[in-house]
Simulated scan of single mutants.
Amino acid sequence: MKRRSFIKTTSLASGLLFVPSFIQAFENTLSSKFGYKRLVIVQLSGGNDGLNTVVPYRDDIYFKSRPNLGLKPEADLHLTDDLRLHPSLLPLKDLYDNGYLTIVNNVGYPNPNRSHFRAMDIWQTASDSDSYYQNGWLGRYLDAEGEHPYNAIEISENLSLALKGKELSGIAVKNPEMLYRLSQDPFLKRISKNFNDAHLNEHNLGYLYKTMITAESSAKYIHETNKIQSSKATYPKTDFGNQLKLIASFINSRLKTKVFYASLDGFDTHVNQLKVHNRLLSNYADSISTFVNDLKSQGTFDDTLILTFSEFGRRVKQNSGRGTDHGSANNLFVIGKHLKKPGVYNQLASLSNLDDNGDIKYEIDFRAIYTTVLNRWLDADTSKILKGSFKPLDFL
Results as ranks from 00 to 15, higher is better:
Asp286Ser: 06
Ser45Phe: 02
Tyr133Gly: 07
Leu79Asp: 12
Arg114Gly: 12
Pro186Ser: 09
Lys193Arg: 13
Gly46Asn: 03
Thr257Asn: 10
Glu157Ser: 11
Arg118Met: 00
Tyr96Lys: 02
Leu386Phe: 10
Glu145Cys: 01
Asn105Ser: 10
Lys227Met: 10
Thr372Tyr: 11
Ser160Glu: 01
Leu71Glu: 09
Thr382Asn: 15
Pro236Asn: 05
Tyr207Met: 13
Ser31Trp: 11
Ala152Trp: 03
Ile7Asp: 04
Asp294Thr: 13
Leu188Asp: 00
Asp143Glu: 12
His270Ala: 11
Ala198Gln: 13
Gln124Ser: 04
Leu246Val: 15
Asn357Pro: 14
Phe6Lys: 06
Leu348Ser: 07
Ser287Glu: 01
Tyr96Met: 01
Leu161Ile: 04
Gly50Cys: 14
Asn194Gly: 03
Ser218Pro: 09
Asp303Trp: 15
Thr382Phe: 13
Phe250Met: 12
Tyr36Ala: 09
Asn113His: 07
Ile247His: 05
Ser289Tyr: 00
Arg254Asp: 02
Val316Asp: 10
Tyr57Trp: 05
Ile171Lys: 01
Thr371Val: 14
Asn353Arg: 15
Phe267Arg: 00
Phe240Asp: 04
Tyr261Glu: 02
Ser88Gly: 02
Arg114Gln: 10
Asn319Lys: 08
Asp82Lys: 10
Tyr180Thr: 09
Phe63Ile: 12
Phe291Trp: 02
Thr29Phe: 07
Ala380Leu: 12
Lys256Asn: 07
Asp121Arg: 11
Tyr133Glu: 09
Asp356Ile: 08
Leu332Ile: 08
Phe240Gly: 09
Val316Leu: 04
Asp94Met: 05
Thr300Cys: 02
Leu168Ala: 11
Leu159Arg: 01
Leu85Ser: 07
Val107Phe: 08
Gly313His: 04
Gly146Glu: 12
Asn111Pro: 01
Gln124Pro: 04
Ser5Lys: 03
Lys164Phe: 06
Ser11His: 07
Asn52Lys: 09
Asn48Gln: 10
Leu39Asn: 00
Ile122Glu: 12
His148Pro: 01
Val276Cys: 01
Leu348Asp: 03
Arg279Ser: 04
Pro112Trp: 07
Asn68Ala: 05
Tyr96Phe: 03
Asp185Tyr: 08
Phe395Tyr: 08
Lys232Asn: 07
Asn204Met: 10
Arg181Pro: 05
Ile360Ser: 11
Ser131Thr: 14
Val344Lys: 04
Ser289Met: 00
Tyr345Cys: 15
Thr125Tyr: 03
